[in-house]
Amino acid sequence: MRILEDMDGTPVGRRVFLGLAAFGVSGIVWGSKAAGLMERLLGPITVKDGSGLLGLLPTGRFRIYSVVGSLPSRSTADWRLDVGGLVGAPYTIGYDELLAMPAVELTKDFQCVTGWRVPDVKWKGVPLAEVLDRARPQPGATALRLESFDGAYTESLTLDQARRSDVIVAYQLDGKPISSAHGGPVRLYVAPMYGYKSLKWLQRISLVDKVAPGYWEDQGYDVDAWIGHSNGRSDTPV
């Protein structure tokens, strides 16, 4: 085919290819700035948009991670929370009892360690401190082990971290009950730390005498996951 007009044309195809490839690959370096810009521009729109087309765009949106073979699911009627370990008064409560406890609302971003950030998420739940105090932690208790009902996902916090006012046992997200995709009916929300600390499908809280790394920490993530000051990242703190 090295014949007739096919070979006469201007050789621009390769230049288009190389130009686009250079643009795309260099985005590894400049992309985080562009990503921040997009999150700020589109994030507030997409998070309100709900089911619309904007929800398909890769910005300002939750990505759903599940560590087991299927999405864990439990009805509010069947859901229970056990609080035990090094406490004076271990207890178990159901969904309605949790909702009867004094609640707080936080409007804060959700920042994932893989880079995505959902701005201005409305959270509602009970301060973790309230949940813990009701069980009367013993003096030897210095840390928490948190367990999900998916049977695999675990997390850890120090007791001091757990008592912060921006750490809650959440049951509402953007004004609605938390869906199982988002870790419902009840999950943790640890505002100042990367998303993996906000354990989904919360089932059990045990007070212990030392921090034991959780699921993602066994995969190499930092145990103290302060946003902007861990995992080598420099995100704006929440």
């Binding site: 985005g27 590894i28 370096v29 985080s32 990503a35 398909l56 890769p58 420099s234």
Partner: peptide
């Protein structure tokens, strides 16, 4: 650098689209 990971996530997602 971890900023690269964020940049790569961003580019990977939009290019995929």
């Amino acid at each position: 650098p971890l900023a690269w990971r964020t940049g790569a996530t961003f580019i990977h997602d939009w290019t995929a689209l």
